[in-house]
């Protein structure tokens, strides 16, 4: 599940709830459930949102009970130390490697989709083409700074990807 929403007028939890209610597929990455500094609490938004979403399988009605879940973590059995209740469910490890995460995600989507979808290798190639074009357009043509790109709202980023894909030749 992508919990990156931007409308500041609506409390974050309501935006997340709306996403959960409308999503057929739920993808949760709990790899950042770790200490950022010694003696500091870890961030627990992601496992909290996973638990909330998981509740739809138990307490939800209709389509909510049929949601598909993909849970990603950095290592295969790491979650058992913190969320042992997840034992028995599939938690896919990505080793903090974007390519492996993409492969896990692609294979999971492919197994739940009748259409044949591109290989992870091809998707990675297309992603590199997008990041190259994105850099060229925003920095070279539009005068953005690296910092501005890093702080770009997620909704803008998604919009640019959609526009970029619009007339792109399929190969």
């Amino acid at each position: 599940m992508i919990a990156e929403t931007e409308n500041g007028n609506i409390p974050r939890m309501f935006r997340i709830e709306k996403l959960m209610r409308n999503s057929k597929y739920s993808i949760h990455d709990i790899s950042k459930m770790e200490f950022l500094e010694p003696n500091k609490l870890a961030r627990f938004n992601m496992p909290f949102e996973l638990g909330l979403d998981f509740g739809s399988l138990i307490f939800g009605i209709g389509k909510l009970k049929e949601k598909n879940f993909l849970i990603l973590d950095s290592e295969r059995h790491r979650y058992k130390k913190a969320i042992s209740d997840l034992s028995g469910y599939d938690v896919e490890p990505h080793e903090n490697n974007p390519e492996i995460a993409l492969r896990r995600l692609r294979n999971w989507v492919a197994s739940r989709n009748e259409k044949i979808i591109s290989s992870a290798n091809r998707i990675w190639q297309v992603y590199t083409e997008f990041t190259g074009d994105s850099y060229d357009i925003l920095i070279n043509k539009r005068g953005y700074s690296q910092g501005e790109i890093k702080e770009m709202p997620y909704s803008d980023y998604i919009k640019y990807i959609q526009e970029w894909l619009t007339d792109r030749p399929k190969n």
């Binding site: 590199t128 083409e129 190259g132 074009d133 994105s134 060229d136 357009i137 925003l138 043509k141 539009r142 919009k159 640019y160 990807i161 526009e163 970029w164 894909l165 619009t166 007339d167 792109r168 030749p169």
Partner: peptide
């Protein structure tokens, strides 16, 4: 204008990566 740039970028791209 930026959205249009992105829309036109894909088919016209000619970069080495």
């Amino acid at each position: 204008a930026i959205e249009k740039d992105f829309r036109n970028a894909g088919p016209t791209g000619n970069k080495l990566h």
